[in-house]
Write a protein that binds this DNA or RNA. Sequence first.
RNA 1: GGAGAGGUGGCAGAGUGGUCGAAUGCGUCUGACUCGAAAUCAGAUUUACGAGCAAUCGUAACGGGGGUUCGAAUCCCUCCCUCUCCGCCA
Length: 424
Amino acid sequence: MLDPKYVREHETEVRQTLENCKSKVNISLYLDLDRRRRDLTISVDKRKERLNKASEEMGRMKKEGQDISAYRGKLQELSDEIKQMDNEISAVEKDFHELELQICNLPDANVPVGGEESNKELRKVGELRQFDFKPKPHEELGAALGILDFEKAAKVSGARFFSLWGLGAKLERALTNFMLDLHEKQGYQELVIPHLVNYQSMEMSGQFPKFIEQAFATKEDNLYLIPTAEVSLANLHRGETLPIGSLPKKYAAYTPCYRREAGTYGKDTKGLIRLHQFNKVEMFQFVEPEKSAEALELLVDNAEEVLKLLGLPYRVVVLATGDKSFSSVKTYDLEVWVPSQNTYREISSCSNCTDFQSRRGAIKFKREGGGKPELVHTLNGSGLAVGRTWLALLENYQQADGSVVIPEVLRPYLGGLDIIRPSK
RNA sequence: GGAGAGGUGGCAGAGUGGUCGAAUGCGUCUGACUCGAAAUCAGAUUUACGAGCAAUCGUAACGGGGGUUCGAAUCCCUCCCUCUCCGCCA
């Protein structure tokens, strides 16, 4: 959510930046509703003042023992008028709020303008391995190794679900533990948090109302399965004023993520790339406003560290205005090399949401010398999507015979195992 | 799932129709006293929106929403949440 005052005072700039995001929000209507809301408030407040004064007077008279029965009902008309105006204001505010929820965060000035095609690669890290055989896709490798099975998962749940077996499951757990341990060293507190959240939480983090069709929902309880731990983490401090000394707050949590993937029929139908349920380790930060830009760079660094230690080649991309996340001012994607597809695929997304989420969730802090509470800035980043890490590892570390070498850093998490071989 | 209790300011805790945005205590901050500190004394101490250059003023908020009334923290309806006991359960 944007600051209405800011939109009011920077109309031209807001219009331009939203245009760059291909946001179709009617800013004229927004400003008009904002104006009406304020005009109505001014005139109803004047009436309320009159009513309050008169009511107080009656209270005083009654206390002095005077008979006020003659006045009873005299203020009815004014009271009714106020009620009517309040209703009108509510209606205007409802429209305004509905509109304001559709506006994405304004992109940072140095974010490239345009759609997906304008995303800008910043750097490539790690050597691409030269295979002396044709690298197999992970779904083939996994199936042959007996550690990955989509058919059985489909029997249980349907398309876009997976199951891991034996060392495959252990590898998933090893990766998760490795990531969480690393993030702890990087200063993140490990949390376990709800996977089912209420509407308000989805709205606060920016999922709703725009992406409501992408969420799995429970019919009876009005709860939603999280598409990312970001939702739960962002909402932990909703409505709180955090002590300045407690910032920055850095959290890491491992959760499954659930996505309906509506509108992606036919895309990435094979393998672990796109699923209704996958595991992810997520990092989240609450920071002081002036520190969020730098915090984003460090956050990306923290995510990159996982890939570096695992020895997986990747590249860093800054997303263009039309491709960045709805709530963010700037988003970096980390893309891991997938040999069988001969391309890089997203494995982490790191965003600075500035005060966009904290405004929706009223998350504030107070500065040292006192003063008004200010909104904190929030940042989120995957560290990493575990399933995609699993597949990248299989593909990048495969050998001609179909076995997979385990990177050094992961071996302690697998009881010293150095290679996954086909079971006989 | 059954029965009951309760949700008030940073915390504790009064307040059952009328100057109640809210007693009191604790905490916090400022000042006095002190070489300094403790103790003591005095004062201050919510947030949002709006008007104003500003001082300031207005409105709203006692879990959320609705109702009764000139007037609601207080009465009524409804939803949510928390706690206790019983049952069930990983």
